[in-house]
Design a binder for these strands. Structure first.
Length: 958
DNA sequence: GAGTTTGAAACT
DNA sequence: CAGTTTCAAACTC
């Protein structure tokens, strides 16, 4: 079974997770010697992310990935020199990376973006900027190295990932199972592919540095926690491994950083990760590709996306990640290390905001604490961390089931988180806290969840693992972050989670033989059980007795997550061990209902604007988001959790068959009315936008065009072959808006992937009319998992995400951009390319898709940028939409600049990909010198993969 | 903790 | 597609 492999990975991860291991590692010692900062074991870790609150921790996971990236960059600075001698491979890779200009540029762009973000958030920015730049270059080099080392990886990251993924979940669980036993398990688990990969990586790393190897182990542990997400089911799992690996690395890095010097850790982690990634890529590229194709199944769970902020999301993510994320991630990751970053970036974007926020807080904390550490390193690490987090988020995992999502996302808080995430792009900030607040109860849950998730990370080493299986990727990332972040907030919360997770994982390893016993055996589960119904991860834990957790009755299964130790299910087959069975069942279910595993909650394009506005505002999601299928409540009046709409904190829509609906989040009737109003508004906006667009195009103020313009533009643009669609799209875009844009992009991606058919239909048809359609997974993701949404949005349009991140970062990143300007361009190019890819995924006709994608991409870009400028030009609606996205971010002027380009791009792209792209690229570069480069390439790949993954997943696992 | 209610999922 | 059954969560006591 795959499970064994995952377990092995997890074991390795666990080992890596432990701070001590890192310290033990020669690399660590070496770094410690080099860096003024001395390795502080546990304490340091906490310090590393003392600022991070539990929520941040969640984000941390994503951050972790970001960190890893950043770290890499950092390492280059710090360690690169030191390591240069040690890590010849690394250096070589770097040089090689140059050959891979695109990947490198992307990496750089990402790094720069992340750095920018970080700087933006952190006072220490100046130092970071310097370090960042270096880091970026180095990072790029690393990436390139990985790529160069594994060309196949770069080309076909997803496949590789897929290979690894399957195992990863298991490994993750295993890793969770025991920290202490990690090593032993590793030995035991070796069978697992993940393990193998790790080993290989280690071997590779050995050449570089023994410390690196240790790091790898650490990663594996962290990954395990993350891996859990593999839930996507087996399909995803395959992919997950790769992702997980990446995440693991990132996690590892995180943990390391936290445990000791970030710089030290980062270096080690970077080095190791690179090798690992490359190894993974090389090894599994071909196979992975195949596996990837098979993996597509799920629509990833978007639990992750839920965001409840990062933390919640992180918890959720685990599950969500599993399928969609995993696949998506995998694809990106499959690309290679680059992908890792890229993949991560995909998911990250969503997360990023939250992460950023966290980071910001952390950074502040760090800044205070940083005094001890080298300012540059700390800052850079923090930056990296943030960027990573952003990337890591894996929002990609979007489509979670309402249940899972609702759990976490249910609260408005989630919504806020989402917005925050988006906003994070532009502004890192506050959202985390806000997110938590929404509903006390909900918050608590989310917190607990997040905490749990975090805890998994923190404690991941300790225990968990089982659960994680599905969410591995996201979780891993989260865990990583957690490690860093865990310090403060999560510590308490985390423990619970950890227990649950650890239990699950341990149990998983133990129970493998008897699924039935699985739950029973692990006391850990009990821990998880403690929580209401959620696992430590924040994912629901099921209590299935007759379904064996192989039916949609099971929340875990429905969410694409493996049952964790916290689950009280009986005769559970929804475990990594039974991955094959799970996959088969999933496929069967998907054959019946291709959308069975797609997110149940989707945002309506039309609603999106309002929702967006609402997002940050308290109300936010409910109105915008809708249940795909709608509820059929008769007695609960949609006022109890029996109602899925209510449970998801979304209003009922025309698609609902409920009787006596009194859904506080929105009544059917109101919904319909709202839709009509929105329609009118959107039409108006479109007209105005078109006019504006024309103006803009004439003036060539591409850069300055507003996001809304973009939205508007998109519709008007000739590219939209279907005027109607264009309008709709524009509207939807609009709504999704600037801020929404991310969602839109996400939609495009998700919509495409998931139910290619449905999504396409949705696009074609008025999204409004088809409430379900709309949204497509993306909205759901957004809704459910703010983070997930972001991730999805990004993931689908990786590019977009990357861009968005960049955009967000732009203001700050621009400075960096100057440095990375050259890179940016390539990235931008990639980005554009990616769009088409994302669309491809969608069932929609190429043209339409393209247009739509263009819209999405543009929107994404715009949205990113928009946040800054949106407000100015955008109509109220648009503004509103933007507002929700991120009130703060909106302010960034860069976005405005960017948006114009986007429009052009959109227009061009729509009209003709060729010209448009060029212009778009140029614009992008200007607008966001730094950010565009980073994710785009990866994004494009990721997007393609994601889209494919999504399409596969949604379509049916097709 | 046991039992009931509820509505989704699964089945026919 | 509609009706019924099964299932597990939500809810109540």
């Amino acid at each position: 079974m795959d499970s064994p492999e995952p377990s092995s990975k997890t074991a390795t991860i666990n080992s890596t997770i432990n701070p001590t291991p890192a310290e033990d590692s020669p690399v660590f010692s070496y770094l410690s010697n080099l860096s003024p900062i001395q390795p502080v074991k546990a304490a340091p870790v906490v310090q590393g992310f003392p600022g991070l609150n539990s929520p941040p921790l969640l984000f941390t996971s994503p951050r972790v990935s970001a960190h890893s990236r950043l770290r890499r960059s950092q390492f280059p600075q710090l360690s690169s020199e030191a390591f240069s001698g040690k890590n010849e491979d690394y250096n070589n890779a770097i040089t090689d990376s140059d050959a891979n200009g695109v990947s490198v540029s992307q990496l750089r762009s990402e790094l720069s973006a992340s750095v920018q973000k970080v700087s933006y958030n952190n006072i220490s920015v100046p130092d970071e900027s310097g370090s960042l730049i270096r880091c970026v270059d180095e990072y790029l080099v690393d990436v390139s190295n990985s790529e160069s080392s594994n060309p196949s990886n770069s080309t076909n990251p997803s496949p590789k990932v897929a290979d690894n993924i399957p195992q990863s979940p298991n490994s993750a669980a295993e890793s969770v199972a025991d920290f202490a036993s990690k090593d032993a398990r590793k030995d035991e688990i070796p069978k697992d592919a993940a393990r193998v990969v790790v080993e290989q990586v280690e071997e590779e790393n050995k050449g570089k540095s023994s410390s690196d190897q240790k790091d790898n182990g650490i990663y594996s542990t962290s990954t395990d926690s993350d891996l859990p997400s593999p839930d996507l089911c087996t399909k995803i799992e395959p992919d997950l491994p790769a992702d997980s690996l990446h995440y693991h690395y990132s996690d590892r890095q995180m943990s390391q950083l936290s445990s000791a010097d970030h710089a030290m850790l980062d270096e080690a982690s970077d080095i190791q990760t690179k090798p690992l990634e490359t190894a993974h890529d090389c090894r599994n590229d071909n196979d992975k590709i195949n596996s990837m194709s098979s993996a597509p199944d799920e629509c990833i769970m978007q639990h992750d996306s839920q965001t409840k902020a990062g933390q919640h999301q992180s918890g959720i993510r685990r599950r969500c990640l599993q399928f969609e994320d995993a696949q998506r991630k995998i694809s990106p990751t499959s690309l290679g290390l680059q992908n890792t970053s890229g993949v991560v970036s995909c998911s990250i974007p969503p997360v990023s905001p939250a992460v950023i926020e966290v980071v910001a807080s952390v950074s502040s904390d760090r800044s205070s604490t940083a005094s001890n550490r080298p300012s540059t390193q700390l800052t850079s690490s923090s930056d990296n961390f943030e960027s990573f987090a952003v990337k890591v988020p894996m929002p990609s995992g979007i489509g979670l089931h309402l249940n899972s999502i609702a759990m976490q996302a249910g609260s408005r808080a989630i919504v806020s988180v989402k917005s925050a995430e988006r906003g994070n792009l532009s502004i890192p900030g506050k959202k985390l806290t806000s997110m938590m607040s929404p509903h006390p109860s909900e918050n608590l849950k989310s917190c607990s969840i997040s905490s749990n998730v975090v805890g998994s990370h923190l404690t991941s080493g300790d225990n968990d693992g089982d659960h994680e299986s599905y969410g591995t990727n996201a979780e891993s990332a989260a865990s990583l972050h957690l490690n860093d972040a865990k310090p403060l907030n999560n510590t308490v919360l985390l423990k619970p989670t950890e227990h649950t997770l650890s239990h699950k994982r341990k149990s998983s390893s133990e129970y493998i033989d008897s699924p039935m016993n699985y739950n029973q055996s692990s006391p850990k589960k009990k821990r998880k059980k403690i929580s209401d119904g959620y696992d430590g991860d924040g994912c629901k834990r099921c209590n299935c007795k007759k379904s064996k957790c192989l039916k949609l009755y099971c929340d875990c299964f429905a969410a694409g997550i493996y049952c964790a130790g916290s689950c009280a299910c009986q005769g559970c087959f929804n475990r990594v061990e039974y991955e094959d069975t799970v996959n088969d069942v999933r496929q069967q279910i998907q054959s019946r209902n291709p959308l069975a595993f797609c997110p149940k909650i989707v945002q309506h394009p039309t609603d999106s604007p309002a929702s967006i506005l609402g997002v940050e505002g308290a109300s936010f999601t409910p109105p915008s988001a809708r249940h795909k299928r709608g509820c059929s409540c008769k007695k609960s009046m949609c006022l109890k959790k029996y109602c899925e709409c209510y449970q998801a904190n979304v209003g009922c829509s025309s698609g609902c068959r409920c009787e006596g609906c009194k859904n506080v989040y929105g009544l059917k009737e109101e919904y319909g009315k709202d839709l009509v109003k929105k329609h009118c508004i959107t039409e108006r906006l479109e007209k105005s936008v078109e006019e504006k667009v024309e103006m803009v195009t004439a003036t060539s103020g591409l850069l300055q065009i507003d996001p809304r313009n973009q939205c508007n533009l998109t519709p008007p643009t000739p590219s939209f072959q279907c005027s109607n669609r264009g309008k709709n799209a524009s509207k939807s875009w609009f709504t999704s808006g600037r801020y929404l844009s991310s969602p839109e992009s996400g939609q495009a991606i998700y919509g495409l992937s998931p139910a290619s058919p449905t999504s396409s239909k949705n696009h074609d048809i008025d999204q409004e009319t088809t409430g379900d359609i709309m949204d497509l997974v993306t909205f759901d993701q957004e809704f459910n998992y703010g983070n997930a949404k972001l991730a999805n949005e990004f993931s689908p349009g990786f590019h977009v995400i990357g861009n968005t991140d960049d955009l967000l970062a732009l203001p700050k990143s621009q400075d960096l951009a100057s440095n990375t300007g050259g890179q940016l361009i390539p990235q931008t190019v990639n980005f554009q390319s990616t769009w088409p890819l994302s669309w491809r995924d969608s069932p929609i006709t190429p043209m339409n898709q393209f247009d739509g994608s263009g819209m999405n991409a543009l929107e994404l870009l715009n949205s990113d940028k928009k946040p800054y400028a949106m407000e100015d030009d955008t109509p109220e609606i648009l503004k509103d939409s933007s507002m929700p996205q991120t009130g703060v971010k909106v302010s960034s002027p860069n976005k405005k600049r960017i948006s114009p380009p986007n429009r052009h791009l959109n227009e061009l792209g729509s009209s003709s990909s060729g010209g448009g792209f060029k212009t778009g690229r140029k614009f992008i570069l200007r607008a966001v010198p730094s950010f565009p480069p980073l994710t785009p390439c990866i994004d494009s790949k990721d997007v393609a993969t994601h889209s494919a993954d999504n399409s596969q997943k949604c379509s049916s696992g097709k």
